[in-house]
Design a protein around this nucleic acid. Structure first.
Lengths: 121, 121
DNA sequence: TTCAAATCTGCAAAAATATGCAGATAAGGA
DNA sequence: TCCTTATCTGCATATTTTTGCAGATTTGAA
């Protein structure tokens, strides 16, 4: 099999894994620190079962690693750089909004960074 | 709706669009030059109907733009930088192979670059 | 006109994902 | 041991995607 074919399959698999709103936010959540399941569930406002399911698939593909401490399971990104790489993609987003000028990208980054309505403690 | 929620949805949509082996190769194919449907179909060894379908979805999300010349439809990347961004992701790939050392990433890049078995003219 | 080449569109069947829930585990404490 | 908390697993159902085809369009040429 042509090599690029192999790599494109692997890459597509990785991208599909990431291509889910919850999982994107989850990865962002782990960008700077490890977290346990319920911590993530609270931060993202999702049922912890769902978070656990997402973590299981991320873990199966070795995107995250687990560390158990008592009854809590802490997760962290195996390669934290992936979070930065994801943020770079914001640049390629069309914002379906009135802002079609150059400040576009800044606007998107701002929206991504803005978590005031959720994780503001 | 919390802003990050909006952005994560948009981003997931973009990633899902890209997360397909054929479409990844297709984007790579358009990285440096525009191509018409049958040119792409030949290069990727896919039925041109399929290529056309992929292009239609990429176009719907404005990832590619079309230019018609006679009966040929040429496509090019709206934001060519996206191809470079995709290549960066190779770094995050686990190669399920004997090479678990540091040359890992180089090996993946090499596999991606290697199209000798297909588009070697 | 008529034909052929290049591409597109619509649809149905197949495959892959996501989601919600019930029940299973694992660990700490009374 | 029994209970509670934190997390995981297995399933059935719902939703999305992918694929292959048959049948349109569009354009250029005879």
């Amino acid at each position: 099999m042509p090599s690029r074919l192999i790599v494109s399959k692997e890459l597509a698999e990785l991208l599909r894994l990431i291509a889910h709103p919850d999982r994107l936010r989850l990865i962002e959540e782990l960008r700077h620190q490890e977290r346990d399941v319920s911590g993530i569930a609270t931060a993202l406002d999702l049922p912890s079962t769902r978070v656990s399911q997402h973590l299981a698939s991320l873990k199966a593909h070795r995107l995250v690693q687990e560390r158990r401490e008592g009854r809590n399971h802490f997760y962290r990104l195996t390669r934290p750089a992936i979070a930065g790489w994801i943020v770079e993609a914001l640049e390629f987003l069309d914002v379906p909004s009135p802002l079609e000028d150059g400040s576009h990208i800044d606007r998107v980054r701002e929206l991504w960074a803005d978590d005031t309505s959720k994780s503001s403690s």
